[in-house]
Each structure stands twice: as C-alpha cells, then as structure tokens.
C-alpha cells in the first residue's frame, strides 16, 4: 500500500489518541464505579441525591470525556484535504 502519504501519519496519530482517550475513560469509569460502589449500601455517600459512585463514574465521567474530546480535537487534530482524485484526474 502507499504508505508515503503524509496524511496517513496524521491519521495514525489521531487513531492512537482515540485509543488513549478510551483507556482513560475506562479507568475513570471503572475506578469510581467499583472503587466507591463496592461498599455496603448503608455506607454510601450521596452527591446531589445520587450515590457518589454513580455521580463520579457516570455523570462526571460523561462530562469529562466531552471536555477532553473537545480539547483534543481543537488542539491536536489537523485538517487535511480530501480531494486528491481531482488533482489526479486533471
């Protein structure tokens, strides 16, 4: 395959960032859910009415991921052109 395309280097880096984000997301989600959630129900702390494990893992987790994706896309993702076919044809 034609590996020399400079756009593939960018694409590969961004795919790796995606893997990194998913790993971070998983650790955050798992850590809070089972770290705090495995206590006895009578020992649960509550945040805004939700059990703390749920609040941090699910609610804060979703918000954090949204913010991270925003930051990553804004600052690390690069625009590349898609119109090589047009150039080839002319």
């Amino acid at each position: 395959m034609e590996q020399q395309d400079y756009r593939f280097k960018i694409a590969h880096r961004e795919a790796l960032i995606g893997v990194g984000l998913a790993l971070f997301n998983f650790v955050w989600w798992f850590g809070f859910a089972y770290g705090l959630g495995s206590q006895d129900v009578s020992d649960y702390q509550y945040v805004f009415g939700f059990p703390a494990w749920f609040f941090y893992s699910a609610i804060v987790g979703v918000v954090i991921m949204a913010v991270l994706v925003f930051i990553v896309v804004k600052f690390f993702f690069v625009d590349v052109p898609f119109d090589e076919e047009v150039e080839d044809a002319s």
Binding site: R7, F8, H12, A15, V19, L21, N25, F82
Partner: peptide, 18 residues
Amino acid sequence: QVATGYFTLMILGKKFAI
C-alpha cells in the same frame, strides 16, 4: 456507549475516509 461517540470516528477516522 459514550465511547462510541468519539472512539469509532477517531479509529476509522481520516484514514478510512481517505
């Protein structure tokens, strides 16, 4: 499933489109 929101697009990403 929040991961589907970014992961699928990032993994297939630009390379798949190109």
